[in-house]
Amino acid sequence: MIAAVGGGTADAADGAGRAPGVSSPDAGFARDMAVHHQQAVEMSFIVRDRTGDEAVRSLAYDIANTQANQRGMLLGWLDLWGLPKVTPGEPPMSWMTAGAADGHDMAGMHAAPGTDGAATPGAEGAAQGGAVTKPGALMPGMATKEELARLDTLRDRDAEVLYLQLMTDHHKGGVAMALGCARLCRTPAEQKLAQGMAEAQRSELSLMADMLGKRGAAPRP
């Protein structure tokens, strides 16, 4: 048994009581979203030390706290299922090949050989729920090492704007992944968690758009 969103406990198995397989959407989402969440936590800690703006610091704290807790749940399920947290040779997002998230085609979103695990967009730009995997980024919405390094050099408004833009992209990718799990995963507790992620991050997307507007900026195209 493992703690579920909203309190209480939930049996981390599918409706028939079986633990998911290593290549199942349930396991793939848990592995990939744990990595995705870790970067959000990292970005939030960076901006916390780069600005004194209470609104941005509060948002960063909420994102870091929420996503760190959710990451712990995802990794806890993998432990409970007796599954690895890393699967060498398996491209990120491969669990989504069974279908699309939120009505978008996921073909072409897997890592290409020789890209160090970075997913390569397909011929159509590989839009994924409004998010695109950039060259050098591991999964949809994730920042590149260069973007993280740049965020670490900025302060005050410049840091706030870049953080809000990067986190907007990050949330778009996260929503697409969460909706994919809500549709493809078979573990009720994980489906519930994924649906809650999508709803919460959509709300934060609206908040971040407003915060960018107050700073004379906008989400990146």
Score class of each variant (00 low, 15 high):
Pro219His: 15
Leu80Cys: 05
Ser44Gln: 11
Asn65Trp: 08
His171Asn: 08
Val35Ile: 12
Met197Thr: 09
Leu207Arg: 14
Thr144Glu: 03
Val47Pro: 06
Pro113Tyr: 02
Thr144Val: 07
Gly15Gln: 04
Gly99His: 15
Ser203Tyr: 09
Ala27Tyr: 08
Ser94Cys: 13
Gly122Leu: 07
Val132Arg: 08
Gly7Leu: 05
Ala126Arg: 02
Arg50Met: 05
Met177Lys: 09
Ala4Cys: 05
Leu138Trp: 00
Arg71His: 00
Pro121Met: 11
His36Met: 00
Val5Ser: 14
His36Gly: 02
Cys181Gln: 00
Ala40Cys: 08
Asp102Ala: 13
Met142Gln: 04
Leu151Tyr: 01
Arg155Met: 10
Glu124Leu: 10
Asp49Met: 07
Gly173Glu: 05
Met1Ile: 01
Arg31Trp: 13
Leu75Arg: 10
Asp102Gly: 06
Thr66Leu: 09
Glu199Trp: 10
Gln70Cys: 03
Met142Val: 01
Val56Met: 09
Gly17Ile: 05
Leu151Glu: 09
Leu193Lys: 14
Glu147Val: 07
Leu205Gln: 15
Ala68Ile: 04
Met177Ala: 10
Glu204His: 15
Glu90Pro: 02
Ala68Lys: 00
Gly114Gln: 01
Ala13Glu: 14
Ile2Gly: 04
Met139Glu: 00
Ala30Ser: 07
Trp81Glu: 03
Gly129Ile: 05
Met208Trp: 08
Asp158Trp: 00
Gly108Lys: 12
Gly8Leu: 06
Ala30Thr: 06
Val132Cys: 00
Gly8Glu: 11
Met106His: 12
Val86Met: 05
Asp116Met: 04
Pro91Tyr: 10
Asp105Asn: 13
Ala209Tyr: 08
Ala68Gln: 08
Ala127Val: 08
Gly122Val: 12
Asn65Glu: 13
Asp105Phe: 11
Lys172Gly: 06
Pro140Thr: 01
Tyr163Gln: 07
Leu166Gln: 09
Met167Phe: 10
Lys192Asn: 06
Asp14Ser: 05
Val175Trp: 04
Leu207Asn: 09
Asp11Leu: 12
Glu204Asn: 13
Glu54Val: 04
Thr66Val: 03
Ser94Phe: 13
Arg215Gly: 03
Ala40Gln: 04
Arg57Glu: 05
Arg155Gln: 09
Val56Glu: 12
Trp95Arg: 07
Gly72Ser: 10
Ala98Glu: 14
Lys85His: 15
Ala10His: 03
Met167Ser: 15
Gln70Phe: 02
Gly136Glu: 03
Asp116Pro: 00
Glu54Thr: 10
Pro140Val: 01
Gly7Cys: 08
Ala3Met: 00
Gln38Ile: 02
Ser94Gly: 14
Pro92Met: 12
Glu54Trp: 06
Ala40Glu: 06
Lys192Gln: 11
Asp116Arg: 02
Glu146Asp: 15
Ala137Val: 04
Gly108Met: 14
Gly103Asp: 13
Phe29His: 02
Glu160Asp: 11
Met73Thr: 10
Pro84Thr: 02
Glu160Thr: 04
Gly8Met: 06
Pro92Ala: 11
Ala182Arg: 03
Val22Asp: 09
Glu147Asp: 12
Asp156Thr: 02
Leu212Ser: 01
His110Leu: 14
Gly72Phe: 05
Gly196His: 15
Met197Glu: 07
Ala118Gly: 03
Asp102Gln: 05
Ala68Arg: 00
Gly76Asp: 13
Gly76Pro: 11
Gly6Phe: 01
Gln128His: 10
Arg150Lys: 15
Ala40Ser: 07
Glu160Ala: 06
Ala40Trp: 00
Ala218Trp: 08
